[in-house]
Design a binder for these strands. Structure first.
Lengths: 194, 194
DNA sequence: GGTGCATATATCAGCAGTGACATATCTCGG
DNA sequence: CCGAGATATGTCACTGCTGATATATGCACC
């Protein structure tokens, strides 16, 4: 997977491992992250497979860079991958796995967990919205016009935002429902006591 | 991660590797899947660590089962895990990575990809809704009352459904926007030609 | 002269996860 | 009697990914 993300980025322009690392987890790719410890070996492997070509570029002030460019073979690989029909990824969501087991912890602890998670998603949502504002500022009316790269970029950003909003809405809903559940328990006990 | 899913399931009742495998990817756990090739070695490892105890249970008709039960140490591990505050998982979504690169394929191919993905998510949504119907049928009014296990189960199911609905809505929206984009391109060319 | 920081590349151990291969029992139908 | 299918457990090679560790340059600041 990682290799296709790299190929897409190098399709725009040649980059070093360090540059790539900043792209992942930065503003451009919302749906893939990678550490340098994964990127450098992958670049080497891709070079060996003929998907990339490397060139050492010295710099006066800074350490020498190894800049990678996509080869015709790399281009073909990327386009072939884009035409495949992958099956659905299986969902792996740690928070939801925990939620499944929340009957094992006190109600207050469960609430705290959900609130914490809601906060994290709100932060990520703000991050995405900042990126969107940035795109709007930089490209203005162009967002509505004819640049395909920008068009697909905006589409994925919209999905990222929709995803975060859904998650946050679920957290809020869950907290309300949990409160109602706790109230019912209370009344249940009161009923038994009375 | 897998180990905590296993511990949660074994907290309810002892199960064999085969039973566990059917639980994952079946109706109960929506947010975690696992193959038997991952489950069996993990069970062995957990037994060695004292989180589980194993017992061979022979059967007249069928091969002998190795049934695992959670130990007190396993219980403590599970509860400690539930109290941790994990950081946000990084999103890895292959479809969105592809979408990012759709400027490299013909517009019809991009549409076909999105429609295909929408269909897959619609199928999964139908699956989740069937599970919810099943829960409603089996438990009826109990869904609104006082069983914590059922309560959290319903909450996670709701999140799964919300997630699928968001994804499907995005696919539909993306297809509309893409059509509008293609129309604009057409008009652009017509303008240039006229 | 020392410390911290950004730049830049690389390796390693270890856990996570996949798909293929392997083996065995018992039942049911042809 | 043979094959298909459910039950049941396991291994293996490979890729994916994380966190830690290592190394080196040059700059700014104290």
């Amino acid at each position: 997977m990682l290799r296709y993300a790299i190929l897409e980025l190098l399709h725009h322009k040649p980059l070093s491992g360090y540059d790539l690392r900043r792209r992942f987890g930065g503003s451009i790719v919302f749906f893939w992250k990678a550490n340098h410890s994964q990127i450098y070996p992958e670049l080497k492997r891709m070079e060996n497979e003929g998907l990339l070509s490397a060139k050492r570029v010295p710099h006066e002030w800074r350490p020498t860079k190894k800049v990678y460019a996509i080869t015709p073979k790399g281009q073909r690989d990327l386009e072939a991958w884009l035409r495949r029909r992958p099956k659905l990824q299986s969902v792996k969501d740690e928070m939801m796995l925990r939620c499944f087991a929340f009957h094992l912890v006190p109600a207050d602890e469960a609430d705290a967990q959900i609130r914490h998670h809601r906060d994290l998603h709100e932060e990520r949502l703000r991050h995405y919205i900042a990126i969107r504002k940035d795109l709007e500022r930089k490209h203005g009316r162009l967002l509505e016009t004819a640049d395909p790269i920008l068009f697909w970029n905006v589409l994925t950003l919209r999905q990222a935002i929709a995803h975060e909003r859904t998650y946050i809405a679920w957290c809020r809903w869950a907290l309300r429902r949990h409160q109602a559940f706790r109230d019912r328990m209370e009344r249940g006990h009161a009923h038994l006591a009375g």
